[in-house]
Amino acid sequence: MSIEISLVDYGLGNLLSVRRMLEYCGARVCVVCRPEEVMAAERLVLPGVGAFAAGMRGLAQRGMVDAVREFSRSGRHLLGICLGMQLLMGVGEENGTHDGLAVLPGRVTAIPSVNPEGNCVKIPHIGWNALEYARDEAAWRGGILQNVRCGDFVYFVHSFHVVPDDGEKCVATVHYENIKLAAVVESDNIHGCQFHPEKSGPIGLRIIDAFLKL
């Protein structure tokens, strides 16, 4: 019996790539766009490419904001990818200040345009970078990074990054132009990747596979 994944369609982003990787890993995928479907999901994936406000608007227009919040409190596993992870935060600062889902307290803020050495930083951050332990190896055990090694490369495309209020929720970081950014946040059943596992080749497959087996 394969695992069923509900993939949230809120009108933005690259659903197909995420779907393809989930299917490649053996999941059955249902694309969902109604609150009752979200609530009934076994496991939820919130994908996303795009702007924060447009993402929240897409969820709100389909009546899914409260449904995703409620799902997150159910103990069932939720994976947010890129914008999908950012929407889990309380506040987004992209093109003004906007309320997020507030599943995890925290904010989404712009990558600094100047690094600690005073050099200009190219934004968006686009490319392959190595995952690092935010604190230690132990934080990766039992989560979506359990089959990944420190130093493995994954693919990032973003201009904004998440800053959880509780820094402990960040389990993996990435250094971009010597600026440390959150790469993975995890809190019990809530998981979020700033990078795109569905675009991260064999390492992405390991991450999605681990999510399916949680």
């Binding site: 490419v49 795009g50 702007a51 093109n95 968006p124 686009i126 495309v157 973003h158 201009s159």
Partner: peptide, 8 residues
């Protein structure tokens, strides 16, 4: 860019 983000 406004609809999908500058990154795409």
């Amino acid at each position: 860019s406004e609809a999908f983000g500058a990154q795409c």
